[in-house]
Deep mutational scan, measured.
Amino acid sequence: KRPMNAFMVWAKDERRKILQAFPDMHNSNISKILGSRWKSMSNQEKQPYYEEQARLSKIHLEKYPNYK
């Protein structure tokens, strides 16, 4: 399994927050909201998630050096 990208790292927690506020919301609607919110974020706001992506990718590479 591939490591999560920056959007997926961010969306994991955000999806949970949306589901708590709107438990009956369909997954497709949540995904649209998440995509819209991510697009509206500045690069500075996204930076911690890109850093986490890099950390996860490094761990993945160490654990699975032959993964293609």
Results as ranks from 00 to 15, higher is better:
50 Y>G: 05
45 E>G: 01
54 A>Q: 08
47 Q>S: 09
19 L>W: 01
10 W>Y: 08
21 A>K: 15
52 E>N: 02
9 V>I: 15
65 P>Q: 12
3 P>E: 14
60 H>C: 10
11 A>E: 09
24 D>Q: 07
62 E>G: 08
45 E>C: 02
67 Y>S: 14
13 D>T: 09
60 H>T: 13
58 K>Q: 08
28 S>P: 02
32 K>T: 07
32 K>M: 07
57 S>K: 06
63 K>T: 11
52 E>F: 01
46 K>T: 01
11 A>V: 03
32 K>D: 09
28 S>T: 10
58 K>V: 07
68 K>I: 11
58 K>E: 14
33 I>Q: 03
42 S>K: 10
67 Y>Q: 14
8 M>H: 14
54 A>S: 09
13 D>I: 04
21 A>Q: 15
66 N>T: 09
51 E>H: 06
50 Y>T: 03
45 E>V: 03
39 K>C: 03
68 K>F: 05
48 P>Y: 07
11 A>Q: 04
14 E>Y: 08
58 K>G: 11
33 I>R: 07
35 G>F: 00
16 R>D: 12
22 F>Q: 13
40 S>T: 10
34 L>I: 04
52 E>K: 05
15 R>D: 01
2 R>P: 13
49 Y>D: 02
28 S>W: 10
18 I>C: 03
8 M>V: 06
52 E>A: 08
15 R>V: 10
18 I>G: 00
52 E>T: 03
14 E>F: 15
61 L>G: 13
41 M>Y: 01
67 Y>W: 11
38 W>D: 00
66 N>W: 06
5 N>C: 10
49 Y>L: 02
19 L>Y: 02
63 K>W: 06
2 R>L: 14
38 W>L: 00
8 M>E: 15
63 K>I: 08
27 N>P: 15
17 K>T: 03
64 Y>F: 12
11 A>P: 00
7 F>Q: 00
39 K>W: 11
39 K>L: 04
61 L>C: 13
42 S>H: 05
27 N>F: 13
46 K>W: 00
14 E>H: 05
8 M>I: 06
16 R>L: 14
53 Q>V: 15
48 P>V: 06
30 I>V: 12
21 A>W: 11
54 A>Y: 08
40 S>D: 10
67 Y>A: 15
56 L>K: 08
64 Y>W: 10
23 P>F: 01
40 S>A: 11
64 Y>N: 15
3 P>M: 06
41 M>K: 06
46 K>G: 00
20 Q>F: 01
63 K>P: 09
42 S>W: 01
15 R>C: 10
5 N>I: 02
39 K>F: 03
34 L>S: 00
8 M>A: 15
44 Q>P: 04
13 D>R: 05
17 K>R: 08
47 Q>P: 00
15 R>N: 00
28 S>I: 09
12 K>F: 03
59 I>G: 11
41 M>E: 03
24 D>W: 05
43 N>T: 14
21 A>G: 05
2 R>N: 14
2 R>V: 13
20 Q>W: 01
35 G>T: 15
13 D>G: 05
42 S>A: 01
51 E>Y: 04
44 Q>I: 10
21 A>P: 03
4 M>H: 10
58 K>Y: 07
45 E>L: 06
66 N>M: 09
19 L>Q: 12
10 W>S: 02
43 N>Y: 13
35 G>R: 09
50 Y>H: 04
54 A>R: 11
10 W>A: 01
27 N>H: 12
32 K>C: 07
18 I>Q: 00
58 K>S: 10
29 N>M: 14
23 P>S: 03
40 S>Y: 01
31 S>W: 13
62 E>R: 05
61 L>S: 13
11 A>G: 04
10 W>P: 05
59 I>P: 10
25 M>S: 03
45 E>T: 01
64 Y>E: 14
38 W>V: 00
55 R>T: 06
1 K>L: 07
5 N>D: 14
40 S>F: 11
56 L>T: 10
13 D>H: 01
16 R>N: 12
3 P>S: 08
31 S>V: 11
52 E>C: 02
25 M>G: 02
9 V>T: 06
38 W>Y: 00
28 S>Q: 14
66 N>V: 09
3 P>W: 07
31 S>E: 15
15 R>K: 12
60 H>L: 04
68 K>M: 09
14 E>L: 15
57 S>E: 15
53 Q>K: 04
66 N>K: 05
28 S>L: 07
29 N>I: 13
62 E>D: 11
8 M>D: 15
60 H>K: 09
48 P>W: 05
13 D>W: 00
31 S>G: 06
24 D>C: 04
55 R>M: 05
54 A>M: 08
43 N>K: 15
21 A>H: 11
40 S>C: 10
67 Y>F: 12
17 K>N: 07
29 N>K: 15
